[in-house]
Simulated assay, not measured.
Amino acid sequence: MSFQHSVEAWVKNHQNIRKGERFRRIAKGLGYAEKLFLEKVWFPMFGHMDHLHPEYEVVDFKDSYRYIDFAYIHHLLRIAIEIDPFGTHLRDMTRDQYSDERDRQNDLIIDGWKVIRFSLDRIRDNPRACQRRIQNLIGKYLVDWQRLKEMSLEEREIIRIARRLQKDLKMQHIKDWLNISDPYARKLLHGLVKKGELAQASGTQRITAYRLMSNQYDYLLD
Results as ranks from 00 to 15, higher is better:
Arg18His: 06
Arg18Ile: 08
Lys19Met: 09
Lys19His: 11
Gly20His: 08
Gly20Asp: 12
Gly20Thr: 02
Gly20Cys: 06
Glu21Lys: 15
Arg22Leu: 05
Arg22Met: 10
Arg22Asp: 15
Phe23Ser: 03
Phe23Asn: 02
Phe23Glu: 05
Phe23Thr: 01
Arg24Glu: 14
Arg24Trp: 08
Arg24Ser: 12
Arg24Asn: 12
Arg25Leu: 15
Arg25Trp: 05
Arg25Cys: 09
Ile26Glu: 09
Ile26Asp: 04
Ala27Lys: 15
Ala27Glu: 15
Lys28Gly: 01
Gly29Lys: 02
Leu30Gln: 07
Gly31Val: 00
Gly31Pro: 10
Gly31Gln: 11
Tyr32Ala: 10
Glu34Phe: 07
Leu36Ile: 06
Leu36Thr: 12
Leu38Ile: 02
Glu39Asn: 08
Glu39Pro: 00
Glu39Phe: 06
Glu39Asp: 12
Lys40Ile: 03
Lys40Thr: 01
Lys40Pro: 04
Lys40Met: 09
Val41Arg: 01
Val41Phe: 02
Trp42Tyr: 07
Phe43Val: 01
Phe43Glu: 09
Phe43Trp: 13
Phe43Lys: 06
Pro44Lys: 08
Met45Asp: 07
Met45Gln: 13
Phe46Cys: 01
Gly47His: 02
Gly47Pro: 02
His48Ile: 00
His48Ala: 08
His48Tyr: 09
Met49Asp: 06
Met49Val: 04
Met49Gln: 09
Pro54Thr: 05
Pro54Cys: 03
Pro54Arg: 05
Glu55Trp: 07
Val58Ser: 04
Val59Glu: 13
Lys62Met: 08
Lys62Arg: 11
Lys62His: 09
Lys62Trp: 10
Asp63Thr: 10
Asp63Ser: 14
Arg66Tyr: 04
Arg66Phe: 00
Tyr67Ala: 03
Tyr67Leu: 03
Ile68Arg: 05
Asp69Met: 07
Phe70Gly: 03
Phe70Glu: 04
Ala71Gly: 02
Tyr72Leu: 03
Ile73Met: 13
His74Arg: 14
His74Trp: 15
His74Glu: 13
His75Gln: 15
Leu76Ile: 07
Leu77Met: 15
Leu77Lys: 13
Arg78Val: 11
Ile79Lys: 11
Ile79Glu: 07
Ile81Gly: 05
Asp84His: 13
Pro85Trp: 00
Gly87Phe: 03
Thr88Pro: 00
Thr88Gly: 11
Thr88Val: 09
Thr88Lys: 08
Thr88Gln: 11
His89Met: 06
Arg91Pro: 00
Met93Lys: 14
Thr94Pro: 04
Thr94Gln: 02
Thr94Met: 03
Thr94Val: 11
Arg95Thr: 11
Arg95Glu: 13
Arg95Asn: 14
Arg95Pro: 07
Asp96Trp: 10
Gln97Arg: 13
Gln97Lys: 09
Gln97Met: 07
Asp100His: 08
Asp100Arg: 14
Asp100Glu: 14
Asp100Pro: 00
Arg102Tyr: 09
Asp103Phe: 14
Arg104Pro: 12
Gln105Arg: 12
